[in-house]
C-alpha cells in the first residue's frame, strides 16, 4: 500500500509497447525512500520519534533512515516551533541539503506559528524555507504525520522533483 506508480504513461517504444521515462522511475524511487533529516525541535519531535518507533513504524513507508547530516538527507521534517534565533539555522540546513529536497512543516508551530503569536516565534517556517506539505496538529498524531509523508510521496511521484529549482 502506498506505492504510487506513475500513472500517465504517454511515451511508447517504437514497437508500440509502453515505455516508462527514466525520470518517472527515479521520481517514484525517490518518493518511496525519503531520507528524513533528524531535525526535531520541540514537542512534535517526540511524536516524530513515536512515528519512527514500532507502533507506527514510518519505515514501512521508506523513511527508515533518519540521517543526521543534511548532506545525506532529502526530507526536512521541521517538527516544532522555530524561534527567531533558530531561523537562520533552519535556512542554513535547508541550503546544505542537496537537490532534490522537500520540506514537511509538521505541527501548528511550523505551519503558522501555532499558539505562539509573539515576539519569539517565527510565524511559520515557510517564512524561511519553501514548504511542500503542512501537517496540522499540536502535536499531530503519528498517523497524521504518516498521512503527510504519503501525500508528499504521491506528489513527488506525480510531479517530479523540480531539479535545480530553489
Amino acid at each position: 500500500m502506498g506505492v504510487a506508480m506513475p500513472s500517465d504513461a504517454q511515451p511508447h517504444r517504437k514497437d508500440g509497447a509502453p515505455a516508462i521515462l527514466f525520470s518517472k522511475l527515479a521520481d517514484w524511487g525517490r518518493s518511496q525512500s525519503l531520507w528524513p533529516m533528524t531535525f526535531g525541535l520541540a514537542c512534535c519531535a517526540i511524536e516524530m520519534m513515536g512515528t519512527a518507533a514500532s507502533r507506527y513504524d514510518v519505515a514501512r513507508f521508506g523513511a527508515e533512515v533518519f540521517r543526521a547530516s543534511p548532506r545525506q538527507s532529502d526530507l526536512m521534517i521541521v517538527s516544532g516551533r522555530v524561534s527567531q534565533k533558530m531561523a537562520p539555522i533552519v535556512r542554513h540546513l535547508y541550503d546544505q541539503m542537496p537537490h532534490p529536497k522537500w520540506v514537511i512543516a509538521m505541527g501548528d508551530c511550523a505551519s503558522c506559528g501555532g499558539m505562539f503569536n509573539n515576539y519569539a516565534i517565527l510565524q511559520g517556517v515557510d517564512k524561511v524555507v519553501p514548504v511542500d506539505v503542512y501537517v496540522p496538529g499540536c502535536p499531530p498524531r503519528p498517523e497524521a504525520l504518516i498521512d503527510g509523508i504519503i501525500k508528499l510521496q504521491k506528489r513527488i511521484a506525480a510531479e517530479g522533483s523540480k531539479e535545480g529549482e530553489q
Binding site: 524561534s83 505562539f116 519569539a120 516565534i121
Partner: peptide
C-alpha cells in the same frame, strides 16, 4: 534556540488558557 516567550504568554492569557501553554514547556 527554542526560546518561545512562555512567560510573556502567561501574562497575556487568562489562567484557564495558560494551562495549555504549560504543557509545552517540558514536553
Amino acid at each position: 534556540y527554542l526560546h518561545t516567550g512562555f512567560e510573556k504568554m502567561f501574562e497575556q492569557k487568562t489562567y484557564w488558557q495558560g494551562v495549555t501553554y504549560s504543557d509545552r514547556m517540558d514536553y
